[in-house]
Write a protein that binds this DNA or RNA. Structure first.
Length: 222
DNA sequence: GACCAGGCACATC
DNA sequence: GATGTGCATGGT
């Protein structure tokens, strides 16, 4: 049964790696900023950018709002794509002030599906970034699919190779208890597994916690 | 020096 | 609707 398999995988990963305690970030706003900055970017580089923003005293909605876009770009430079990301952060800030008086407490009032749609309407916020914000900043039970999650799922035959974002999301959503805390840890554990054993260039399959897992998931559950 | 990293929007067919 | 491309830094 699929549910048992996905829960078994979770158990194996948790035993091996321990609780990940995601998202790394002191405030809800910092989590959102990090979600944008980490787009196709190594987290180490994002940390430098976040440190710059904090040092400048700008890791708040009002703080980012008062920055010139050029200044913002310079502060987040270590995270790469700094011009486009500065624009994306400004887009989010504009949305936040135009609709919610710049207050995340007000954003929180919206139901999950509605909020997802509103986040996706912001230029620069795509599916993964929106879902990361929903799960990690607002505690909603939304399973995040990122490059690591997809790669791990495909390498271990958890999904058909041509499955798209929605299909992968459905795989986890429909075969696990609908629990934000579980989704949080599960995704973080997948990323950790990906970093250690499932990188693009040199997959290190020996020692992988899923090494001896039977690749026998029933197709109708995919 | 090539390749990679917790994506996304936009152009073109 | 699928496919290709620009965006950019820092580590391996």
């Amino acid at each position: 049964m699929q549910r048992k398999n996905l829960e078994q995988i979770y158990k194996l990963l948790l035993e091996r790696f321990g609780r990940q305690g995601w998202w790394p970030g002191e405030t809800r706003f910092e989590i959102i900023v990090g979600a944008v900055l980490t787009q196709n970017t190594n987290w180490k580089n994002v940390e430098r950018a976040i440190a710059n923003l904090k040092e400048a005293g700008c890791m708040t909605p009002a703080g980012l709002k008062q920055l010139e876009i050029g200044e913002l770009a310079e502060l987040i430079r270590p995270a790469g794509y700094y011009n486009i990301k500065a624009k994306r952060l400004k887009n989010f800030i504009g949305w936040l002030f135009d609709n919610y008086e710049g207050r995340l407490e007000h954003v929180e009032q919206s139901a999950t599906e509605q909020l997802r749609g509103r986040l996706l309407s912001i230029n620069g916020i795509g599916r993964e970034t929106a879902d990361s914000i929903l799960l990690y900043a607002f505690g909603r039970a939304v399973f995040v699919i990122d490059a690591y999650t997809a790669r791990v799922a495909f390498r271990h035959n958890l999904a058909y190779p041509d499955s798209d974002y929605e299909m992968l999301q459905e795989l986890f959503a429909s075969n696990l208890p609908n629990d934000a805390e579980l989704f949080n840890e599960y995704h973080a554990l997948f990323v950790e597994l990906g970093k250690r054993y499932c990188s693009r260039r040199k997959p290190k399959c020996t020692g992988c916690p899923l090494e001896h897992l039977p690749h026998t998931l029933e197709p109708e559950y995919y």
